[in-house]
Amino acid sequence: MSGIAETAAQAAQAREAGNTAFLAICEAEAKIIEAQGVVREIIGNGGSDTLSDWLMLLNQTHSQLIVARNTVPLANELGQRFINNLFS
């Protein structure tokens, strides 16, 4: 395998792992959204400081996941661009 082909294969494998990471982040986000819904429901039936703190942390987790979820595809795209450039 030539040097360029080997680099491209390595990069493609890395990009594939990036896709897997993206799916895992989406899965985590779905779970966090579910947890937020349940906690909001419990708060609706009578809240407490502990519950509010929990919800706040879930909201923050969700915000950070949104950032990560938006960043990973961008990284993957840059990886793809790198691979394309190898052959251009």
Binding site: Q10, A21, E27, A28, K31
Partner: peptide, 30 residues
């Protein structure tokens, strides 16, 4: 109910650990 929400959050953490591991692998390659 709260335990159910906590389990979902734990599942999310598990998925995120997998994501970190994958991203770590990608980072090393890059």
């Amino acid at each position: 109910t709260a335990q159910g929400a906590m389990r979902r959050s734990e599942d999310a953490i598990e998925a995120l650990r997998n994501a970190v591991s994958d991203l770590g692998g990608v980072t090393n390659t890059v």
